[in-house]
Each structure stands twice: as structure tokens, then as C-alpha cells.
């Protein structure tokens, strides 16, 4: 019984090492716009990873992670632009602000059971562009104009172009987040999170503080998505309020569902999906993109509730069983 399991695990580990090696070598293989797109995919994968923690492991639904992404992006942009911060503290502060935001925003709804987080975050997603445009913070956020960030993040001693440097930076953060969350879900805390998802009452009776665990899950997810937002600022050098509307949040949700909620590799698959599908769909018509998302969401909830990754895994298990 143990042999196929451990051998498949070894294959999995080999695949991961190969994938990482390929990614590390990527800047030598591709250039320009395609490298930019891959960087974006990685950045979105980090954001999706954040949402996946809430939806896939926490069993709660956030419809406002686009807004959290926006907060991360704006904090980093304002920090570098108005306060002339170095990119590293700017990104770290953005992450921490989102972590704190997660705690504060999550608390009122997460101590209640039911749909309240979805309701509150839905409103958050809708309100975010308005808030970013508001007059009181216009000096920093630039109102409707948004913020341009002109500074080169590349250290003097590194002979790398801006694009390549940002690519490696994003890759490093994604890998840390990837292995970090994988380790987290093998730890005591991770088991508590999953216990709360499976059965709140049972978890509570085993001594898990349900509200605090849900809050920690949400805050952690905001941290990752906020970091992704900050990296987004480094990639695009520009943030504007209307690019962080409700659709951004829905996009992240689509990515979680398509990739597979509660799977480790799902966010990467989902990020590829939301990065490349719009380009293909927009060639059809203006309405096509969201119609395609709607269709995929329905297909996922109807037929593939564990997403592409879960589906493929199921296929592999069945194939192996037949042998």
C-alpha cells in the first residue's frame, strides 16, 4: 500500500523541483512581454493563494480580496511615492497593513456564523474604488489619477534588468508563501483551521477557539493577498482606483474555483487561467469575458467542485486503481 503513495510523492517532489528550476531559468529563455505575463501570473497566484486559504481551507467566503489586493498595492505605491521608502520596507509594510486590516475587518463578521463575511466583503469590494478616490486622501493616492511609482528596485551591485529583478523577487515571495502555507497546514494551527472548516462545534469541543482561528485564517489570507498587491505595484509601476473594482475580487474567486479550492497547486492553475483567458475572450466580445467566467464557475460548482487540480488528481487515482 505504501509503495505507490511514496513513489507518487517522490514524483511530485521531482516535478516541483523541475518546475522551480524551469522558473529560475526562465528569464534566460523568454524576454519582454511574455516574461511580464509570467511575472503577473506568479503575482496573481500569490493573491489567489491568499484567497484559497479562506475559501479552500477556512471554509469562509471572501468576495473582497480584490479590495485587499488594492490596499496592498496602494500602501506600497504611496509608501514609495509620497514617503520615498525603499521597496523592501514598502512591501513589508503593505503586507502588515493588510494583515491588520484582516483582523479588524474580519472580526465583526467572523464571530457570527453564516454568510456575513461574504456580505461584508462584497460591500468592501464595491466601495473600494470610491474610498481610494476620496478627497481626504487625494494628496497621497492621487484621486482618480492613481499613483505612478518611479524608482528602480534593482540594487546597484546586481547586474539585472528591472523586469528580471522583479520576476525573481516575485518568484521568491511566491515560493516562500507556497512552502510556508504547505508547512502551515501540516502544523497544529493548520489542523485547527481545517477542523473549524469541517465542523465548528466539534472543533470547539476539542478546545479550538473557533472565532480566533477563523480570524487568523482570514488575516493570514489578507497578508498574502496584500503582499501580492504590493508586488503588483512593483511590476506595473502604476496603480489606479478603478482597476480594483468588484470584478477583481470575482476574478480571484474564479481563479480559486477553477484551480481547485483547498489544493496547494490550484492557485497557480487558477492564476494562469485568469491571466490568459481574458486576452482570448476579449477577441470575441466585451461581454464574453464575464460570460466565460460565469460559465466556468458553474461548471466548477456543478461538475468539478475540487477544481482542475482536484479533478486531475482524481483521474490519476482512478487510473492507478485500474492498473
Amino acid at each position: 500500500m505504501q509503495t505507490p503513495n511514496s513513489s507518487s510523492r517522490r514524483i511530485g517532489a521531482l516535478l516541483i523541483v523541475a518546475a522551480i528550476a524551469l522558473l529560475v531559468a526562465l528569464p534566460m529563455l523568454v524576454k519582454g512581454f511574455f516574461l511580464f505575463q509570467i511575472t503577473m501570473v506568479l503575482c496573481m497566484a500569490l493573491a489567489v493563494m491568499g484567497l484559497n486559504i479562506v475559501v479552500g481551507y477556512g471554509g469562509q467566503l471572501s468576495l473582497g480580496h480584490g479590495a485587499v489586493f488594492a490596499i496592498g498595492a496602494y500602501v506600497a505605491a504611496v509608501g514609495m511615492d509620497s514617503f520615498a521608502l525603499h521597496w523592501l520596507p514598502a512591501v513589508v509594510i503593505a503586507g502588515l497593513v493588510c494583515l491588520a486590516f484582516g483582523v479588524l475587518f474580519g472580526w465583526p463578521s467572523l464571530r457570527l456564523k453564516g454568510h456575513h463575511l461574504a456580505l461584508a466583503t462584497f460591500a468592501l469590494a464595491l466601495a473600494m474604488p470610491q474610498i481610494l478616490k476620496h478627497r481626504s486622501i487625494e494628496t497621497w493616492t492621487g484621486g482618480v489619477q492613481g499613483v505612478m511609482v518611479f524608482n528602480s528596485p534593482v540594487p546597484d551591485w546586481l547586474p539585472l534588468s528591472r523586469e528580471v529583478f522583479v520576476f525573481y523577487l516575485v518568484l521568491a515571495v511566491v515560493l516562500i508563501a507556497f512552502f510556508g502555507t504547505a508547512a502551515l497546514f501540516r502544523s497544529r494551527m493548520g489542523r485547527a483551521i481545517i477542523a473549524v472548516k469541517e465542523n465548528q462545534i466539534a472543533a470547539a469541543s476539542m478546545g479550538v477557539n473557533v472565532t480566533r482561528t477563523k480570524l487568523a485564517t482570514f488575516a493570514l489570507s489578507c497578508l498574502l493577498t496584500g503582499l501580492a498587491g504590493a508586488l503588483y505595484t512593483l511590476i506595473t509601476e502604476y496603480v489606479s482606483p478603478d482597476s480594483f473594482d468588484l470584478m477583481k475580487s470575482i476574478l480571484l474567486l474564479v481563479a480559486v474555483m477553477v484551480g481547485g479550492a483547498g489544493t496547494i497547486l490550484g492557485p497557480l492553475v487558477g492564476a494562469v487561467f485568469i491571466q490568459f483567458v481574458p486576452n482570448l475572450a476579449e477577441q470575441v466580445s466585451q461581454s464574453a469575458t464575464s460570460a466565460i467566467y460565469a460559465g466556468f464557475l458553474l461548471i466548477m460548482v456543478f461538475f468539478m467542485p475540487t477544481g482542475v487540480v482536484g479533478f486531475v488528481r482524481g483521474l490519476l487515482i482512478r487510473l492507478r486503481a485500474r492498473r
Partner: peptide
């Protein structure tokens, strides 16, 4: 119909699918 007894998450995802689906249908 088939989501009445599903988890809140699944149900809301189905609703969001309807949300963007009907929205784009209106526009289209």
C-alpha cells in the same frame, strides 16, 4: 436546486456565477 443543501461557500459561488452571467447577458 442542487445547492440548497450545499455549503454556504458553494452556494454563494453559484450565485456569483449567476451574478456575472446575468450581468453579461443583460449587456450582451
Amino acid at each position: 436546486r442542487r445547492f440548497h443543501s450545499a455549503s454556504a461557500t458553494t452556494f454563494v459561488v453559484a450565485c456569483i456565477a449567476l451574478f456575472i452571467g446575468i450581468n453579461s447577458l443583460s449587456g450582451w
